[in-house]
C-alpha cells in the first residue's frame, strides 16, 4: 500500500515536471482561449446574425456584410481612417527618428529635454482631446493666436471639414515621445566602434546615417512603425471626445463607427461584421508592410528572439 502511494506521488511529480511549461504558461494560455480565441470565434458567428443584445440573435446569413458594403458611410469611415493613418504615421516616425538623433547627444540638461519630449505621451487620450479642442478654438485658442503673430488668420479647425484632418494629424505629432524613447534605446545599443571606423574612413554624416544608423535601427523602426499603424487604424477617443465624427463625417473614424453600431444603434451583428472587416484590413496591411520591408531590415542575430 505504502509503495503504491509512493509511486503514485512520484508519478504526480513526474507529471508536473513533464508539463511544467504548460503549468507555468497556463495563465496566458487560459487567457488567450477565454479572452481572445472564444470571443473572436463567437464574433464571427454573430456577424452572420441580426442581434440587438436584448432579444436572442436571429440568423441572417450574409445580410450584415451586404449592408456594410452598400453603406456609403462605411467607405467614408475607411477612407478617413486610412488617410489619417498613412499621413500621420510616416510623419511621426520620421520626426521621432530625427528627434531621437538630436536627443542622443550629450549636451547639458539633456535628460530634462528628453523628459519634456516624452511628457505628452504619458497623457491620457481624453486629456489630449479636451486640451486640443481648446487649443484649436478658432477665436480664443492657442493655435490661431500663435498663427496670428505671423499674420495668418487660422481656419476654424474643428468645424471645417477640410481642416479637421490636418488638425488631428498635427495633434498626433504631439505624442511622438513614445517612439522617441524606443529609438533612443535603440541608438544607445549601436556599437561605438562602427562610427569610429567610419570616421577613419572619412565617411560623412549622411553616409554614417544611411550605412550604420538606419540599418542598425531598422528592426526598431519597423516595430514602432507597425504598432503605430495598428494603433492609428483604431483611433477612437479623438472622434468620440472632440468631434463626434463630424463635421460632415470628415472625422468618422472606423472604430468610432463600429462603436456606434454596437452601443448606440444596438446592431451587434453589423458591428461584429465591421470589426472583422477591420481585422482583415489590419492583417493585410501588416503582412504587406512586413513583406515589403523584409529586404530592408537588418538583423544582427536572430537568436534569442528579436521582436519581428
Amino acid at each position: 500500500m505504502k509503495i503504491q502511494i509512493r509511486t503514485c506521488h512520484s508519478q504526480f511529480q513526474q507529471w508536473i515536471s513533464k508539463h511544467k511549461f504548460l503549468l507555468f504558461a497556463s495563465p496566458w494560455i487560459i487567457g488567450f482561449i477565454a479572452f481572445t480565441l472564444i470571443p473572436m470565434l463567437s464574433s464571427l458567428l454573430i456577424s452572420f446574425t441580426e442581434w440587438n443584445i436584448l432579444t436572442p440573435p436571429k440568423f441572417a446569413g450574409l445580410e450584415n456584410y451586404k449592408s456594410v458594403f452598400a453603406d456609403p458611410l462605411f467607405y467614408k469611415s475607411l477612407k478617413v481612417t486610412l488617410v489619417y493613418t498613412f499621413v500621420s504615421v510616416p510623419i511621426n516616425v520620421t520626426l521621432a527618428f530625427f528627434a531621437a538623433l538630436l536627443l542622443n547627444t550629450d549636451i547639458k540638461f539633456i535628460n530634462v529635454y528628453r523628459t519634456i519630449y516624452y511628457l505628452p505621451a504619458v497623457v491620457s487620450g481624453v486629456v489630449v482631446s479636451l486640451l486640443w479642442s481648446w487649443i484649436y478654438n478658432s477665436e480664443f485658442g492657442l493655435f490661431n493666436n500663435f498663427l496670428l503673430k505671423f499674420g495668418i488668420n487660422g481656419p476654424r479647425w474643428l468645424s471645417d471639414e477640410h481642416w479637421i484632418m490636418p488638425a488631428l494629424i498635427i495633434m498626433s505629432i504631439w505624442g511622438i515621445g513614445g517612439s522617441i524613447i524606443m529609438y533612443l534605446s535603440g541608438l544607445q545599443g549601436i556599437p561605438r566602434y562602427l562610427y569610429e571606423s567610419a570616421k577613419l574612413d572619412a565617411a560623412n554624416w549622411w553616409t554614417r546615417l544611411t550605412k550604420i544608423t538606419l540599418p542598425s535601427m531598422s528592426p526598431i523602426i519597423l516595430f514602432t512603425g507597425l504598432t503605430s499603424v495598428i494603433g492609428a487604424l483604431q483611433t477612437f477617443t479623438q472622434a468620440y471626445v472632440m468631434t463626434s465624427g463630424g463635421p460632415n463625417n470628415a472625422s468618422l473614424f472606423y472604430a468610432y463607427y463600429v462603436y456606434k453600431h454596437a452601443f448606440v444603434w444596438k446592431q451587434m451583428g453589423k458591428a461584429c461584421a465591421l470589426a472583422w472587416i477591420l481585422f482583415i484590413v489590419i492583417f493585410l496591411i501588416t503582412v504587406i508592410l512586413l513583406k515589403a520591408s523584409k529586404s530592408k531590415i537588418y538583423y544582427e542575430s536572430k537568436d534569442g528572439g528579436d521582436i519581428l
Partner: peptide, 22 residues
C-alpha cells in the same frame, strides 16, 4: 511564442466587441 507575439499585434478593436458580448 510566435502566437504570443502575434497577439501583441492583434488589434484591440477586434477582440473588444466580442469580449463585451462575453
Amino acid at each position: 511564442f510566435l502566437l504570443l507575439l502575434a497577439t501583441m499585434m492583434l488589434p484591440g478593436v477586434v477582440t473588444f466587441f466580442p469580449q463585451f458580448i462575453l
